[in-house]
């Protein structure tokens, strides 16, 4: 077990990352550079600095021991019990630190805390195997399924992602999350493509996530270009047309907000 990991930050009373009241641990470091990413500060493997203003600088990237992270997670145990919540490991790509997190997840599981991993899935399958025994649910992003799209938008190797998805769905409870991005997959054709590939894996549910540009301030604070600064956010109603595409393939589907 690896003793130290690197986190970006911890979000308490996180209500959008799974069931109940959760603590979301955003891990530092990602192997993808998705063009629309709303957590750009979590991408570097080392650290990132967000310069919001002269007196507001936030460092992303803190080394932490498994024991210390566990301590911070169980602070809110009473809320997990009351609400049916737990801990969500997100990022960044949490599975880049699968060795470290498997230790933390094991401690959580031993304590009866619900564990959820929110992953983009572009990692060797062994990473999943490391954490799966201690994980209740995987949120598994599928952003694109063709090589061209994945290259264009810097979101990984589709073959690896879809293979992992299929294997994981055989053993674990998996919810597929599809961010709907204008100019990329905001069309029936693209969604049908994605749905066809996802259906083969038989996940327990598909969540559609409307594009937003709420991470723009972070790009500014990192002095980085953001391709989506002027792209209009999508509304929940814009996505309704896609739900039946998944349902027709026998998948449960809902729109997240």
């Amino acid at each position: 077990m690896i003793e130290r990991g690197r986190i970006s930050r911890i979000q308490y009373f996180s209500t959008g990352d799974g069931d109940g009241i959760r603590t979301t641990v955003f891990m530092q470091g990602c192997n993808l550079r998705c063009a629309w990413c709303h957590n750009p500060e979590t991408q570097p493997l080392d650290t990132a600095i967000l310069n919001y203003s002269e007196d507001k600088r936030v460092l992303s990237g803190e080394d932490i021991t498994a024991d210390e992270l566990f301590k911070r997670i169980i602070k809110d145990e009473v809320f997990y019990i009351e609400s049916g919540g737990g801990v969500t490991f997100s990022g960044g790509e949490p599975l880049l630190q699968a060795d470290f997190l498997s230790g933390v997840a094991k401690m959580c599981k031993g304590r009866g805390i619900n564990v959820l991993f929110d992953t983009a899935g572009c990692v060797p399958y062994q990473c999943f195997e490391r954490v799966a025994p201690y994980t209740d649910t995987f949120y598994f992003d599928v952003k694109a399924v063709t090589k061209e799209d994945c290259e264009k938008y810097r979101c990984g190797d589709p073959k690896l992602v879809l293979d992992n998805l299929k294997r994981l769905c055989l053993k674990s409870n998996v919810v597929v999350r599809v961010p709907i991005i204008p100019g990329h997959n905001n069309s029936k054709e693209k969604i049908e493509q994605i749905a066809g590939n996802v259906a083969d894996a038989h996940p327990s549910r598909v969540d559609l996530l409307p594009f937003h540009r709420l991470g723009a301030g972070k790009y500014r604070a990192m002095n980085k270009e953001y391709d989506y600064l002027y792209t209009e956010p999508l509304k929940k109603s814009d996505l309704e047309q896609y739900v039946c595409i998944f349902e027709d393939l026998g998948l449960k589907c809902r729109i997240e907000k």
């Binding site: 937003h212 709420l214 301030g217």
Partner: peptide, 15 residues
């Protein structure tokens, strides 16, 4: 703010 939370006053005006 969707996938993450933030202090309102630290968000840019357009956000």
């Amino acid at each position: 703010v969707s996938g993450f939370s933030a202090y309102y006053t630290y968000l840019t005006r357009d956000i």
